[in-house]
């Protein structure tokens, strides 16, 4: 789960990089060029399969591990736990499920449109991600749903990155402090970065 997770962590950075091109004031030229590259380059096409595999593995392990963890304590305590814990660590499956719901929505909005499963809105080509995004984010309610999705993704990542390093055995007092800071920064940058885009389109259209 940790390895699949770390792979997804790299993917998110690439995805964020391309999305931030939406902010470029060029009528979507650079963004569309990047989207076209991602949609046609054979290496990227191959990696899309790997990426789906990574997502599936991560989710399957997440659900399996959570079930095993629940089963391991058949009789629960009467008194609520007062132990100090890393605060977001206990809610990974919850934040994960919210991100998954968001992912399904995201697939209906973009990927299924691209591959032709869902009809694109009138006047927009199914490969035209730029105008599709503009239309989506012009709806304030919809933009809010996206931002809530990213907020929970941020919560998930904040614990996830440092936990993944611990799981693969990288916890040493030489660098664990750095890993923790990087983990928090990464979560803020990724969640914040994705959120900036709908905010920009809502406020300055």
């Amino acid at each position: 789960m940790a390895l699949a997770g770390l792979f997804l962590v790299v993917f998110l950075l690439v995805h964020l990089g391309i999305n931030l091109l939406l902010l470029a004031d060029d009528g979507g030229q650079s963004f569309s060029a990047a989207a076209a590259f991602m949609g046609t380059n054979p290496v990227i096409r191959l990696f899309e399969v790997v990426l789906f595999g990574g997502f599936l593995l991560h989710m399957a392990f997440g659900v399996l591990v959570t079930i095993r963890n629940r089963v391991s304590r058949p009789v629960r305590y009467q008194h609520k736990s007062q132990s100090e814990t890393s605060p977001l660590s206990k809610y990974m499956i919850h934040s994960g499920i919210i991100v998954f719901i968001f992912l399904v929505l995201h697939f209906i909005d973009f990927y299924f449109v691209k591959i032709g499963l869902v009809a694109p809105p009138a006047g927009i080509d199914r490969h035209d991600f730029y105008h599709r995004s503009l239309l989506l984010f012009s709806d304030k309610g919809y933009a809010s749903i996206y931002m809530i999705g990213f907020l929970f993704l941020g919560f998930h990542l904040n614990h996830a990155v440092q936990a993944a390093f611990q799981t693969i055995g990288m916890n040493h007092n030489k660098y664990i402090g750095t890993i923790k800071v990087v983990s928090i920064l990464y979560a803020i940058i990724v969640a914040g970065g994705f959120m900036v885009i709908p905010v920009r389109f809502m406020l300055f259209r």
């Binding site: 963890n69 391991s72 736990s81 890393s86 040493h172």
Partner: peptide, 28 residues
């Protein structure tokens, strides 16, 4: 039938001998 580690670190906080979770990373 023990559960898995989700890196909540309650164990380290409650251990009467204050064993560190760096041991878990070492075991991994």
């Amino acid at each position: 039938g023990f559960g898995n580690c989700s890196n909540a670190y309650a164990c380290e906080a409650e251990c009467p001998k204050e064993i560190s979770v760096t041991n878990i990373a070492r075991m991994n």
